[in-house]
């Protein structure tokens, strides 16, 4: 039941997000606004609702699964872009590697070094 109650919370904040998007004509999806509203609400309450915590973990793990159905279609329309493949793949792969490199360099330059040793240790332990 806890999971369902948490799901209802998420749906309510999704609807609230949709309301804000519609009222202020924001060019953003309701999910993102709902997420920000829920974060603000947690901040206002000074803690998280345990029901929402329960449902959020499996749902976040599902995010990758949820974009998969959209990907399938590309195999069926591939012919349409037949003469563009080289340009598309080069742009995506080289462009992404370049942007990863620049964001890593930018943030290493401007983000102060972590003074919490636990954080760094958590990462080192994984590798």
């Amino acid at each position: 039941m806890s999971v369902l109650r948490g799901f209802l919370w998420l749906l309510v904040f999704l609807l609230l997000g949709q309301a804000v998007v519609a009222l202020f004509r924001l060019p953003m999806p309701s999910g993102v606004i709902g997420m920000l509203l829920l974060t603000l609400f947690f901040g206002y309450r000074g803690g998280m609702n345990p029901d929402v915590v329960h449902i959020s973990q499996p749902l976040i793990a599902m995010l990758a699964l949820l974009i998969m159905p959209g990907v399938v279609e590309i195999f069926f329309v591939a012919g349409q872009f037949a003469d563009q493949w080289v340009a598309i793949l080069t742009a995506l792969i080289a462009g992404t590697l370049l942007s990863v490199l620049s964001s890593l360099l930018l943030m290493r330059r401007y983000l102060p070094a972590s003074d919490a040793p636990g954080l760094a240790a958590g990462n080192a332990g994984h590798e």
């Binding site: 799901f7 998420l10 749906l11 904040f13 999704l14 997000g17 999806p29 309701s30 999910g31 993102v32 709902g34 997420m35 920000l36 829920l38 974060t39 947690f42 901040g43 998280m48 929402v52 915590v53 449902i55 959020s56 973990q57 749902l59 976040i60 599902m62 995010l63 699964l65 949820l66 974009i67 159905p69 959209g70 399938v72 279609e73």
Partner: peptide, 24 residues
């Protein structure tokens, strides 16, 4: 397929809202 999978993709909205938990 897309018609049916659209139902699954409905969960994308609540899943995005769920990101409030790690964010908070």
């Amino acid at each position: 397929y897309n018609r049916g999978a659209g139902w699954l993709m409905l969960l994308l909205g609540p899943a995005t809202v769920a990101l409030a938990v790690p964010l908070y």
